[in-house]
Nucleic acid binder design. Structure first.
Lengths: 350, 350
DNA sequence: GCTTTTAATGCATTCGAATGCATGATATGA
DNA sequence: TCATATCATGCATTCGAATGCATTAAAAGC
């Protein structure tokens, strides 16, 4: 009795022997009784295939779980639809929504995002080697590449777009924010509020973005006749800002206003002011940042800063890339996203 | 005169007509006077190729800028060396270092990371369609997929690893932290400190990670005879935590301790306490989080929380994937990363 | 009813690297 | 000196989809 029940039980699992390998257009063709080329054309629907045949093919494809192999397609079309995005640990941490936005924008254009990691200090294309073996359609770089490396990439004829940075010497498509002008605006605002004794806490001196911001700021102050502004170099981070600022403050007079090259730096400076030095912000000292990351709006920081729309920049980067792919020989393009002043409570302003 | 100078000038640019297309193994073969197969073998160095020939081939390859085409290789080897990583805007924002670590670990194994974006609510494999047309070797999912979708992916024979989540019903390789046990530990710590009136601010009820944490917490309290703990559901975010908490507090008695299913939620609750409700932490109320993101250590938050090593989890995920690729038929694996209690100042403890 | 046009499909080749097998050139042994 | 073993290389095919051209069948024209 028990045996019979046991024997009757295992009817549930359908013994459809799963194919060890992925179905190909030939499999579909055979089952549908058509030629492989007909299957291909049914999927591309770029040619004259009768409605019934197409439907039949798609139906068979559905049942066997067929899906065109993008690799095989790339071989013949010479378009891999793969776009590399180069990021370091820092750029990834600082722009996660931007990376996501790039992925979305690429997907909308039928392209895929190949994420290529690179070390934070002195990244080279040798670090990307594995990824470059794939015939990428293009590359969006969120890291600073050397001139020779940029040249090498261009010689490979892949569409290159720099994200949030530009190449000073070689013409390359790029998207940036107007760092310099925005920093100058910040300087004017602080100066107008009566601040005269400044401190500048920058990012790595090798990072052009930080340099542009710092130089834009200093240049504007110079125009007001203010010079010899002390300068602290950091790694862009919270800890860097905090520790760099504290080191600078040892025995020095507290500045009236601190310009930080990023919000993260500013957070570090702010916490150092309030929790270590016991300064009240903005009564004793004004602190401003740059980026307007979401945390800047929190009441704990309430940071006055320059807003940069990273997601917009990401979309623009993809836009430039697609344009470049459509017209490889057109002249170099540059998109600029305008930073906007965000007035909050961390700085005394008029 | 001027004409002559002008005519003489443009000598600089070397007129090496760049090949419109990427060099192939045939190009190298022709130039080196060997067969294409010899070029291939020189690069794979898996076969008996004399040292001189290999050197010659590599030298020629260098001068013409040849690099094996990974796509063509994949066609024949049936290994694309592409691994998909599925992420939503939220998971990407919450785990940027983990994504980076996955990229690094994959690169070390000669694989590339294909980043596949998916919507935050109810992601399905239809969202991944474009990426799935590539014959991926495997997939690391940082999002919650439905059972049928998981089944479909398994039927495609691609190595699937779930990151920071497990599949309750279908056996799938996965890496998680011991959310439930860790939350229980948190509950014991708070209970031991004398707290008796609790509030629970969870993530989305559909997110198993949040559920595990909340259930682990509630279950432990139940063991202490404490039940009917009010529960707030959020989207895991700062704003969600802040607003959800404030809504709950309307007319309600302030709880002694608030358990938050993530640090971001806890930050929102903390700011609501201090900046909106005027409560002192931890004097008036204890708040604890979960994750130990870097911001939790800042003096402005000083959050007591459970530390989860996301980077470790990322590496383990890649490790599992590689093991699965090496032994497709071996039994299902599960790696667990142990969360550790981080005692800081946001909660009254013994 | 026969030719011409058009539409629908099949055939055969292509993309670039990998690889089993055959071949040729040395080196080794008898 | 000849046979055999060893090493190095070439030949030819393969992966899966796309596509120019050829072919067939049906529709239209006369």
């Amino acid at each position: 009795m028990a045996n019979q029940i046991r024997a009757a039980a295992p009817d549930a699992a359908p013994s459809t022997t799963l194919p060890r390998r992925r179905a190909t257009s030939y499999d579909v063709a055979r089952q549908a009784g058509v030629a492989q080329s007909t299957v291909s054309r049914s999927f591309r629907n770029d040619s004259a295939i009768s409605a019934e045949t197409r439907e039949l093919v798609l139906e068979v494809a559905r049942t066997v779980g067929y899906m065109p192999n993008a690799l095989a397609r790339s071989m013949i079309t010479k378009r891999s639809n793969l776009v590399g995005v180069v990021a370091t640990n820092y750029t990834l941490r600082g722009n996660p929504e931007a990376i996501y936005a790039i992925g979305e924008a690429l997907a909308a254009a039928g392209k895929q995002l190949l994420l290529m990691t690179a070390p934070h200090d002195n990244p080279t294309i040798a670090d990307l080697r594995g990824g470059l073996e794939y015939p990428l359609d293009g590359l969006i770089s969120c890291v600073q590449l050397s001139d020779p490396d940029i040249k090498t990439l261009q010689e490979r004829h892949l569409a290159l777009v720099l994200y949030n940075r530009r190449s000073p010497r070689i013409p390359v498509d790029s998207v940036t924010a107007n760092h310099g002008a925005a920093a100058a605006k910040m300087a004017r605002a602080l100066h107008a509020a009566g601040h005269r004794r400044f401190l500048c806490v920058g990012g790595p001196s090798a990072a052009p973005v930080s340099r542009e911001r710092v130089e834009g700021f200093l240049h504007q102050l110079l125009a007001f006749g203010i010079k010899n502004i002390p300068m602290v170099e950091t790694d862009y981070s919270y800890a860097g800002g905090r520790d760099g600022f504290l080191a600078q403050m040892k025995g020095a007079k507290v500045p009236e206003a601190v310009f930080c090259a990023s919000d993260q730096i500013a957070f570090g400076v702010l916490d150092a002011c309030r929790f270590t030095l016991g300064l009240e912000v903005p009564k004793d000292i004004s602190v401003v940042g740059f980026d307007d990351v979401p945390e800047a709006a929190r009441p704990g920081y309430d940071l006055t800063t320059m807003h940069q729309d990273r997601v917009d920049m990401a979309r623009q980067a993809v836009g430039l890339l697609l344009q470049r792919l459509a017209a490889p020989e057109s002249s170099v393009m540059h998109a600029q996203v305008t930073a906007s002043f965000v007035r909050r409570g961390s700085a005394k302003l008029e």
